[in-house]
Structure formats: C-alpha cells, structure tokens
Design a protein around this nucleic acid. Sequence first.
DNA 1: CGTTCAGTTGACCATGATCAAGAGTGGTGG
DNA 2: CCACCACTCTTGATCATGGTCAACTGAACG
Lengths: 257, 257
Amino acid sequence: MPNALTRRLEEYTPLADADRAELAHLCSQSIHTVGARLDLIREGDAPRSIYVILDGWAGHYRTLEDGRRQIVDFAIPGDLCDVNLFILDRVDTSICSITRLKVAEVGREEFRRVITNFPNITTALWWVELVSKSIHREWIVSAGQRSARQRIAHLFCEIFLRLESVGLTDGFACDFPLTQTDIAETTGLTAVHVNRTLQELRRDGLIVFERRRLTIPDLLALQGAGLFNPNYLHIRRLNRHTDAGREVREGGIKEGR
Amino acid sequence: MPNALTRRLEEYTPLADADRAELAHLCSQSIHTVGARLDLIREGDAPRSIYVILDGWAGHYRTLEDGRRQIVDFAIPGDLCDVNLFILDRVDTSICSITRLKVAEVGREEFRRVITNFPNITTALWWVELVSKSIHREWIVSAGQRSARQRIAHLFCEIFLRLESVGLTDGFACDFPLTQTDIAETTGLTAVHVNRTLQELRRDGLIVFERRRLTIPDLLALQGAGLFNPNYLHIRRLNRHTDAGREVREGGIKEGR
DNA sequence: CGTTCAGTTGACCATGATCAAGAGTGGTGG
DNA sequence: CCACCACTCTTGATCATGGTCAACTGAACG
C-alpha cells in the first residue's frame, strides 16, 4: 500500500517505479510525531524544512492584530508544508496540528536533489502547488459569496473529496476531526452560528456528523446545498457519485475575445 | 526604463543584463491590445499561452451557479496570467480586462526555453507565484474576518503598494480604475454598501477617490483602518511610509513545538 | 471526581443586504 | 452639436443573516 504522498501525486501524473521508490525513501527518513493543537511553524519564521503529512490533519492560519484567527487551508495526508523553502525568506502563514500528526521532514538539500533528478515528481509537485492555489481561490469565493449553510456544505464536500483522493474515506463516511470552532475559523462564521447551521444540515438529512466522524448520505445533494462544483480540485479520477460531468460553462457570460 | 515585468522580478531577485535582455525580448514579441471589460480566458478553457500584463488592469474571477461573481485576484502591469500552462489541463478561473490592456503573449515553447536557460528568471517567477498565493491567503482572511470598512481599506493599501512596486504610483496617488461594483465583487460586499463605506473613508480623510484616481494622504492611517500588515506581499524594498518594521509576532500564541 | 473543552440554547443586536428610485456622467450616432 | 442611452454613483427605507453575550449541558481525561 503506497504512502499518502505517492497516492496524492499519482492522482495527477503517472509515476515510474523509481519515482515511487524515491518517494517512499523520502517519507521514511526523518519521521516525527507532533501532538495535537501545537504550532509547527509560525508566521515570520525563517523556513527550515518541508514537512510531508503522513497521518493526521494540520491547518494553515493567519491571525489579525485584534486576535481573530482565520484558517486558510488544511493539510491532510499527502499534503506538503511549506514549499516556500527555497524562495521566500519568511514564512507568511502559521501551521498548527489539528490532530496528532505523523510527518516526514525533508531537508533543503534532500528536496533539491529530488527536484533535479526526478522530473515526474517535480511536475506532480507543481501540480499540487497549483491545485492548492485553486483551492485558495475557491475559499475566497466561499467567504465572499456563499451563505453560512452553503459555506459549511461546501467545506464538507471539498474535504470529503480530498480525503477520498488519498484513500481516507470509507464509503460515505470519513474521519473529520474539526471542532465547531475550527469550522468557524475556517468559514469566517462564529462557533454559535456554525452550531445552528450544522443542526439545520443534520435536520435536512444532508450530513451525519458526530464524534469526529462525518457521513454524507447523498453527496450530490450536499453539493447542491453548497453550490459545489468539484472542477477546481482538478482531481483526475472523480468517483461515481460526484458531479464532475456537469457542464461548467454558464449561460450568461457576455462578449467573446 | 525597464518594462513592468522586469521591474517586478527585480523586486525579488537580482537579474543579470542577459536576463533583462531576455525579458525585454519576451515582452516585445507578440503584443496585443484588448478592449476594456472583455474576457481573456474563461473557466474551463484549455490553457494556450501566458499573457504578461504590460499596461492596464485585469481581474481573475469565478462565478457561482446562481450568477454571483467573485473577483479573486487582480493582475496589474508586470503580472502574469496564467502559469497553469504546463500543468493543469483546464483553466479554473476566468480573466477579464478591467481597463484597455496591453499584453505580451508568450507561447508554450518560448516559455519553456526561458525556464530552462535563465535560472534567475525561473527563481523570480517562482517567487511571484508564491507571493500570489500569499495574497490569496490574505484575501481569505479579509473576506472571513475583516469588516466592510477594513476590507476596503485593506484592498486600497494592497493595491497601492503593488502598484508602487512596479513604479505606477505618483507620490500619494495612483490610477485606480475599479468601479464600486468591482470593489463589491472583490470584497464580497454589495455595491450599495461599498458606496456608503467609501463615503465614510472619505469623510474620515483616509482616502481621496474620484474619477478613477486614488489618493492616500496618510498610508499608515489607512493601514491601521484596514488591519493591514504588508509582510504578506513580500516586497523587498518597502518605502518610508509603510509599516514593514512593525513586529509581526503576536503576543498570545500558545505553546511551542 | 473535578476540571476543561466542545457543544447547545436563548435573547437580543448590528452589520450589511435588498429593493427602489433618482442624479450624474460619458460615449455614440443622427 | 445635441439627444439619447447606458452605466456608475447616490440615497432612503426596510429586512435578514449572522454576531454577541451569557448560561448551561455533556463528554473526555487525568
């Protein structure tokens, strides 16, 4: 069974045996365990290493001067933090563990060696980076345009599909370790309102969510509730129950080029 | 006087004469003019070329099924759209011109040649890409946490500094071709509320904004009003009037790693 | 078995949305 | 050159989504 990073990269680019071996090697060199709810990296730090998430969830966040906090991304198994390494001299976002984490640390030189010797891996990493940017854009859309109900439904759809793409779902269910406060800090809502909205989604039969476990009985229905269209995730092999076939193009766009 | 792209890249990485010559060459090969308010690229298209903005503003946006639209980024002179080119098979965001544009079209092969032969340029392009991602994160923070007044103040600060970094400001003033509706679609507010908030900012003397021209008499004051901290822009040579020296680190972050 | 954190509920409030109408302003064609 | 049209900006009245504050319940963990 391949590790999460390999699985993730193969979502995008075919890998050779040598690539897979290299990735397995990378992810077995320097493995750390981090307890839940600890900062891995803080805004303003100089970047040191890249971490590959092998198990558990982490969150990228920024804080405002008045203390409010916004989660801007999640890192689940197969994700990397922080590719900034070679470029920016300061990390611009903090990262904290949400659950207990298992991470592989990849040093600067190690990473550079892989980049120069394994073009398939490099391409796949580019892909991951661009998909991550696309996800950021969708979060801007969520925070800017979607209602509370839509935002939460959308978040659940996104995370479910991301987990599925690395093999971490189980039929209609998945582990989902976010607290209601986490969801609030992700969606730009308050925890109180998240609570009420979750009850509404439960009442409507769109989700079952208890004891850190999420079940989505009808993903298409939840996608409808969240105005969710999976194209922005750029997942190649979308499963039966998703909406990928749906036509993206709207009717009303005006003018051509 | 260097073109906008060169100026932009030199913000990040020292370039050699050969690099500069190559950039000048790139930006003079295939120049197009595009009228205002036209789509350059639409969500779902297959990527064709990269465009370098030489003059004018463009906007990246996504639309929801119910027709609402969210601008997720601006492209000003020196910016590129879309580096997706080699990786993703579908463009995930539409781009439209805000003003009349002058763009340089760079083809796939041309771009690949530059990437392989000019490592300084490649590094600088990486940098640009990561800064763009950092800006996306800040927009998530804005939409999620900032009030209407803070969002608009923040947007003005960001754009002013981005324009300044490519030499497009004139003392305390700059061209600013966004309509109030554009600002609304950027900040996730309604045009009516943007109007009222702008009046408030004007009344407080924080901005002068008329006839597509923005003046910021006291940038530090506007930064305060927007909870703006320029670090996320990763601009090297920040000017006298910005707030870069301010300590980023908050007091209250708990626990170490 | 007590402490802490997550979740829940209720009452009230405020920010910003919605709807509607009117006033500039600029560009275009007759 | 003027008239018209379209778009942007402005203002007012009303409404709703989601925020705030506060108290209480329940589960987990040492």
